[in-house]
Design a binder for these strands. Structure first.
Length: 205
DNA sequence: GTCGTGATAGCCT
DNA sequence: GGCTATCACGACG
């Protein structure tokens, strides 16, 4: 497939940078899940930056725990956590080892494997409902705690590709579901492709 | 379309 | 024991 030939796997240096820049640059990139020899992929359309121990919305705000330890490790690994008793969320670890930061992947636009995604998301009727939220995306791509800590900088069960590099306009907003985070709750660290139908919620208030 | 609410379990004070 | 980086469904009009 031409898409495969043209696309390169994103190297570790992509993630070893300021988290806000990585969150913005991940928009339009392709998230690939290989499962049973087949390929599922989405174009990333929405992200959020969680920028370090001082960020009161970041899971690392109270130091390292068994759950968040992957965030303290090398950039370019998956941090997958279980939330609300039912769902998983996928993050990509950024910045130097020892500094806990990551980008939450909040939504994608299906590119390959739509039939498999539909089989994994039996509740979803419209294509928009397959991957338009962090929990939905993980369900559609079969991402769970087994992938916590996975290296996403080489081909394997989970990795990212550069994609087609098509141009797009980017918007930023406050992050979702972090009302508890004091002076950090309104930081404009949610990024999305403007007017893309696969984003999880309306752009801004 | 928007709003309110229940499901469900692991995490951390 | 309280909270959570969510989702689906039903009521409303």
């Amino acid at each position: 497939m031409l898409l495969n030939i043209m696309s390169a796997v994103l190297p570790r240096s992509f993630y070893d940078r300021d988290t806000i820049e990585v969150a913005r640059d991940l928009l339009g990139k392709v998230l690939v899940r290989e499962i049973d020899g087949s390929r599922l992929s989405v174009k990333i359309v929405e992200t959020e930056a969680y920028v370090g121990p001082h960020d009161k919305a970041c899971h690392a705000r109270n130091g390292m725990t068994a759950r968040n330890r992957v965030m303290f490790g090398e950039p370019g690994h998956a941090y997958v956590y279980f939330i609300y008793g039912m769902y998983y969320c996928l993050n990509l670890v950024t910045e130097k080892a020892g500094y806990p930061a990551a980008v939450l992947i909040r939504a994608g636009e299906p590119l390959e494997g739509e039939d498999t995604m539909r089989a994994l998301r039996t509740k979803a009727r419209k294509i928009k409902d397959l991957t338009s939220g962090p929990g939905k995306l993980c369900q559609a791509m079969s991402i769970d705690r087994e992938l916590n800590g996975a290296d996403v900088c080489r081909k394997g069960p989970l990795y990212l590709e550069t994609g087609m590099g098509d141009s797009h306009e980017i918007a930023s907003c406050k992050r979702i579901g972090v009302e508890y985070a004091g002076e950090y709750k309104d930081k404009p660290w949610r990024f999305l492709l403007k007017d893309n139908p696969f984003i999880s919620k309306a752009e801004c208030k």
